[in-house]
Amino acid sequence: MSKLTSKKKAVYLQIIISRDGFKCFYCKQSFVKNNWIYEHLDNNPNHSEVENIVLAHQSCNLKKRNDCDMQIMAMEKLKLNHQVNLSCERESVELEGPTLSPEMDTNMQNFEITEQYITEIIQTDTSIEAKNAINAAAMLCHKKTGSGSTVAIRRYIDMLTSSEGPFMFAKNDEGKKIIIKRSGK
């Protein structure tokens, strides 16, 4: 049992497209741009073997929760995937090598840029205003990778300030939201 990491997503994408095509497993419609998600057939995010993963529209994923036919369809697909021996395909793909998606590489680079920027500022200034951190990191990412949306940077900062992250949110004397180093991290 393991989580579906960014590295696995990139590796699995090639296998899933080869196995199922680049269309929603449930509605069979092709995807437009990046309007797809990785769907766990058994609804358990801890079961992240490629046999348990298909591509789906977010709306179909949500609909599946209350649709018995879609749930049966998912269980039948899971059973079929387990019957088909995918181990040869899986072993031929390196989980430690470069990702298969330029977008995934850029996302990982931008996360690292954001983390490094916040770390450096906090080491010298002990805190950074959250709004400034988002805008400055987005600009740095845009300069270094050609991509840097504030929405993505907010997500990175949410990760970095999660209970497992090295930083946390606080308020300064003026009541503004700031990012500080989490004690013990």
Rank of each mutant, 00 (worst) to 15 (best):
M1L: 07
M1G: 12
K3R: 13
K3T: 08
K3D: 00
T5G: 15
T5M: 14
S6P: 05
K7Q: 13
K7V: 06
K8C: 08
Y12E: 08
L13T: 08
I16K: 10
I17E: 06
S18Y: 06
R19F: 03
G21F: 05
F22D: 10
K23Q: 14
F25Y: 10
F25T: 12
C27N: 06
Q29R: 15
Q29E: 15
F31C: 13
F31E: 09
K33E: 15
W36H: 13
W36E: 08
D42K: 13
D42H: 07
N44H: 11
H47R: 10
H47M: 02
V50R: 01
V54P: 03
L55H: 01
A56M: 02
A56E: 03
Q58M: 10
S59C: 07
N61P: 01
K63N: 06
K63F: 02
R65P: 01
N66V: 02
D69K: 14
Q71P: 02
I72R: 13
M73I: 05
M73W: 02
K77Q: 15
K79H: 12
Q83S: 04
C88R: 12
R90A: 09
E91D: 13
V93A: 11
E94W: 05
L95A: 09
G97A: 14
P98I: 07
P98Y: 03
L100E: 09
L100F: 14
M104T: 12
M104D: 06
D105H: 12
T106G: 05
N107Y: 14
N107M: 03
M108R: 15
Q109R: 14
Q109M: 11
E112Q: 12
T114D: 02
E115P: 00
Y117Q: 02
T119K: 15
Q123S: 11
Q123T: 08
D125V: 08
D125F: 06
T126E: 14
A137R: 02
A137G: 05
M139L: 08
C141L: 01
H142E: 12
K143I: 03
S149P: 00
T150V: 03
A152R: 08
I153Q: 04
R154Q: 14
R154H: 08
R155G: 13
Y156T: 11
M159R: 13
L160Y: 04
T161F: 01
S162P: 10
S163M: 04
E164L: 09
G165P: 00
P166T: 06
F167Q: 04
F169G: 02
F169Y: 03
A170P: 01
A170I: 00
N172W: 00
K176F: 01
K176D: 12
K177L: 10
K177I: 09
I180G: 04
K181V: 10
R182L: 14
G184T: 13
